[in-house]
Design a protein around this nucleic acid. Sequence first.
DNA 1: TCATATT
Length: 387
Amino acid sequence: MSRMVTIISTMETQVSNGPSGTSLPNGPVISTNGATDDSKTNLIVNYLPQNMTQEEFKSLFGSIGEIESCKLVRDKITGIHDASAGQSLGYGFVNYVDPNDADKAINTLNGLKLQTKTIKVSYARPSSASIRDANLYVSGLPKTMTQKDMEQLFSQYGRIITSRILVDQVTAGISRGVGFIRFDKRNEAEEAIKGLNGQKPLGAAEPITVKFANNPSQKTGQALLTQLYQTAARRYTGPLHHQTQRFSLIPPFGKGPDPNNSTKPILDNLLNASYGVKRFSPITIDSMTSLAGVNLTGPTGAGWCIFVYNLSPEADESVLWQLFGPFGAVTNVKVIRDFTTNKCKGFGFVTMTNYDEAAMAIASLNGYRLGDRVLQVSFKTSKQHKA
DNA sequence: TCATATT
């Protein structure tokens, strides 16, 4: 019965690290809200992979700079055993100590491909009731109408935060005639409904329907259970139809969901040489595991540790996220640096949760040409001898 | 008849 499961809105607080250098006796401290002014330290991150955890989220954004607080937003579910582990809503917030790091995070991580998603990193608007429930569902759109056309139609009612037209999965690219428009303010959305619901767009045969979109946090119990089932099932079978997408390296920047969000891909120089080039190493997984240092670091606690060799002195953590993120769940990355120069010593480590994803990343990235360097990628062994 | 953007 769907009424056995009720959803309450989330009012979680953001987990804080506390002031730097201060040790916290009882684990994470609960801060008051993140920045509520339009400070340049607080970011919103959208389109995160469903299975990304708070820890991975923090690890990813912590690689940019010191984090004041961060939070992966989740559903709070009552009526189900163990309500503490709510489903990720696919977005989160990061508040940096230094505004420069927030800027750097946008430039570096916006557009990053993680599994099947392309994440979006942008400044969070000041939290306010007026910006909530400003999302519209539009149906009956002419199949020829583009996202741009739709935005043009709706922009007369206010500032559009994001828009999307759903497309057919199989015939990839053909409009399903339905879409979403998120306005900056709820009252703008209300005006758009009044002005456009039941109206025919210039020259269209049929009128469109404009209404508020379903709120994800008030989904029915049934819908949530099927979603839980589907995400659970996917863990075992793997997202088969996404394989080609997962294992190709394509430019992560420039085609974000929001064209208004400018990206300055500072990693372009690092990744340019490899754009569009699929490089699959001929070395098989089996042959790799039987290579010299047989003592693989097993799935000890965190996951599978991967050794990455021949990184440039300028390499940073975000490069490793760029490279490995598309292959599956990455829990941690680390670039080994010289203590005095702070330059990369030529290698680093990546931890991945699942063996098959780690193996696929290795098979694809070992021998991968990054700029003018050829990477050596393998499972970490207990001893990395020098050749 | 709807993918997941405001703590």
